[in-house]
């Protein structure tokens, strides 16, 4: 009846407020962020690695060695980054 209807509405409104208070910690927000990270993550790591190698080569006068080494380390770091982001995304899917 009318009274019952009112009570139901009151209960629903109360629950809404409570739900707002409770801090559910779902990490859905991470997903989109992760999706857009993949591409640049790899490139950035390679670039950083190469620049570090370049600087070290100049520092120690060992011309091509550091830059080559650090290029590959940069690639590994980039792949690691991508794997981490992908792992994060998979965690989201669960």
């Amino acid at each position: 009846m009318d009274d019952n209807n009112f009570k139901t509405r009151l209960r629903i409104a109360k629950r809404e407020i409570l739900k707002k208070d409770a801090n559910e910690n779902n990490k859905r927000g991470l997903f989109l962020g992760s999706a857009f990270r993949l591409g640049t993550e790899l490139v950035a790591a390679v670039a950083v690695g190469t620049i570090i190698g370049f600087i070290l080569d100049n520092w120690f006068d060992t011309k091509p060695w550091f830059i080559i080494t650090f290029f590959f380390i940069g690639v590994i770091a980039g792949i690691l980054n991508v794997v981490r982001v992908a792992n994060n995304m998979q965690k989201e899917d669960k």
């Binding site: 009274d3 009151l10 409104a13 407020i17």
Partner: peptide
């Protein structure tokens, strides 16, 4: 706003109990 809504809800509940 949240407080007002909460207060109103409490008031409504009280009034309904009274009724």
């Amino acid at each position: 706003r949240e407080k007002k809504i909460k207060d109103n809800l409490d008031e409504a509940k009280k009034l309904s109990e009274l009724a």
